[in-house]
Amino acid sequence: MAKAGTVKRRATARMRRPPVGASPGTLIADPAARRSELRLTLISPQKFMTIDNASIDDVAANCEKWPIIWLDCTGLANISLIEEIGRIFSLHPLALEDVVNTGQRPKVDFFEDHAFVVVRMIDDVTAHRYEQIAVFFGKGFVVTFQEREGDPFDPVRKRIESSAPNRLRARGADYLAYALIDAIVDSYFPPIETAGDLVDSIEDEMMNTPHKHQMRQLHELRRDANVLKGVLWPMRDALATLIRNDVPYVKAETKVFLNDTLDHSLRLIELVETQRDMLTGLIEMHLSLSQARTNDVISYLTIVSVIFMPLTFLVGVWGMNFSPDASPWNMPELRSYYGYPAALVFMLLVAIGLISFFRWKKWL
Rank of each mutant, 00 (worst) to 15 (best):
A183V: 02
G25C: 07
Q46A: 12
D174S: 03
I79Q: 06
E205N: 12
V250F: 00
S201E: 15
N321L: 00
R87V: 07
R159M: 02
C73A: 15
F110A: 10
P19Y: 07
D52N: 14
D151W: 04
L287S: 11
D109G: 06
S288C: 05
E284S: 14
M235P: 00
F137C: 08
D200Q: 12
S23T: 13
A60N: 13
Y338K: 13
W70M: 02
L40C: 09
H211K: 15
N295V: 04
F137A: 06
L266M: 08
G281I: 02
H211S: 12
L218G: 02
K251M: 10
H286F: 03
V297K: 07
L311M: 08
P328G: 12
L268E: 05
A11D: 00
Q146P: 05
I69R: 15
V7K: 10
A183G: 02
V297R: 03
D52V: 03
D109F: 02
A183C: 03
G339E: 11
P45L: 01
F141E: 04
V272Y: 00
F308W: 03
R236K: 09
L81M: 15
I184N: 02
P19G: 12
W66D: 05
F308N: 06
H114K: 10
I79P: 08
M320V: 11
Y178Q: 06
R35E: 15
G138D: 11
G150F: 03
I79Y: 08
